[in-house]
Design a protein around this nucleic acid. Structure first.
Lengths: 238, 238
DNA sequence: CGCAGCAATTGATCACTATCAATGCGATGC
DNA sequence: GCATCGCATTGATAGTGATCAATTGCTGCG
């Protein structure tokens, strides 16, 4: 990583309105601005390690971050993708425990680091922030549970379609002459991990979707040829 | 359910020390005491329904409650068991959304209902309560993720052993002459649901464990014949 | 340009677990 | 004591996805 000279103001951060920090006072934002450390990060870099103590939180200004978890056998799972505006690493900090997962840069990113004492300071002065993180964690909890239920009840094909639709929601490029287009932001391996399956199975399922003329893949681009049929399939699941 | 005449004081509640309410003031406890509604509930009764708006939270004074989730196809999953001291239904209330799951009584229970306005009142006056629920939800989040990773990486046998050990932790009856004993608090079907498999698979896996002389089952009682071997198997997983 | 190294695909096989159907068991009620 | 209902087990089968191994494709780099 490289320490960036840019000390852009949080106030001007285009994503702040959707974040846990959206209702900070000028004064509070100023506090963060003065102490935050912004850095340029490249894919593959680790923001924090599983098992480490929390030193603060990280706000994603731009780019893409993956949250991964290693199990006892060393197998890794990609739990979720985090987008600009998201603050990560908050869980270990707020529960006063070590990071139960690690965060890896997936696309060139600008990351703002806010150290622990600043965060606790803000929390103790402004209860709204705590509330925001509470709601955030409740949402993540819902997602996690739905994820579990999906991977239990749905076949790989349906899970993949579902996952692609979720990705399309966040990263979709609208439509071109062929249909809706999505630049999948992750590797096949990670795509597989997201839906709890092996890369081989993803490959085969992709062939499957091609044969059925539902989705056309070229590299990381996915073209949805018949998006209604897709919604049918993931909506009223057989 | 039957409205119970007993208005036992929260102060005297044997489980309160481990709960989110542990550091309420006398005055605050008194507020709850005055407005809470205690009821006797029998197995099968539903405390709140998935999809309903939150009307308050429910504190389990005694008994056992299961949190279940229904998916779009009507398949149900038992997500977790809740024990005396636990407050449930807090998620919908705090995130201002409908219940994403439902709660069913699994053993005769005493349940205290605390209505919404009391909770929000307490929350707004005492930020510590919010913090407690925040930590609670962070813990649940960790559990949920570990659960997902386990059901991805581990075979049924290992998951079952793991689940039994977790249950033993909470409901274990110490040991008799034969070894450690656990009265499994749920049906086979629910046991299966907890580890995301079919009841048939649980049955077969149980036979398996019997053959290996690891665990002996008679009805809902499980005798752990060789608890070290069990820990070996779930610790250093192949 | 060609090589190295990694990512992705393809192929063949196998194990696990789901599924379906039937039977067994146990509690409850008449 | 017998019938019934629900729960649990057992059996037979099939399908899904994992696994292992080999190939292809791609990217960056000397």
């Amino acid at each position: 990583m490289s320490e960036s000279g840019s000390h852009s103001k949080c106030n001007a951060c285009p994503t702040r309105q959707n974040t846990e920090w959206k209702d900070l006072s000028e004064e509070e934002l100023d506090l963060i601005d003065r102490f935050k450390r912004v850095s340029d990060r490249e894919p593959g870099e680790i923001i924090y390690q599983q098992g480490d103590q929390s030193e603060g939180v990280y706000c994603i200004q731009s780019g893409l971050v993956g949250i991964r978890q290693l199990d006892a056998d060393g197998k890794e799972t990609l739990l979720r993708l985090c987008n600009p505006g998201e603050t990560i690493g908050y869980r270990a900090l707020l529960s006063n425990s070590e990071h139960s997962h690690y965060a890896e840069i997936l696309a060139p990113s600008h990351i703002c680091f806010i150290e622990r004492r600043i965060v606790t300071d803000l929390l103790s002065h402004n209860p709204v922030i705590g509330e925001r993180f509470l709601v955030r964690s409740l949402n993540e909890l819902n997602e996690a549970e739905e994820n579990l239920v999906r991977s239990r009840n749905l076949k790989v094909r349906t899970r993949l379609l579902h996952c692609l639709m979720v990705l399309f929601d966040q990263y979709g490029d609208g439509n071109d002459q062929k249909g809706y287009v999505l630049k999948i932001p992750v590797s096949r391996k990670d795509l597989a991990s997201l839906i709890t399956v092996t890369p081989e199975s993803v490959s085969r399922t992709i062939n499957n979707l091609e044969e059925d003329n539902l989705v056309h893949f070229e590299g990381r681009n996915a073209h949805f040829m018949n998006i209604d049929a897709i919604f049918d399939e993931i909506g009223a699941v057989h």
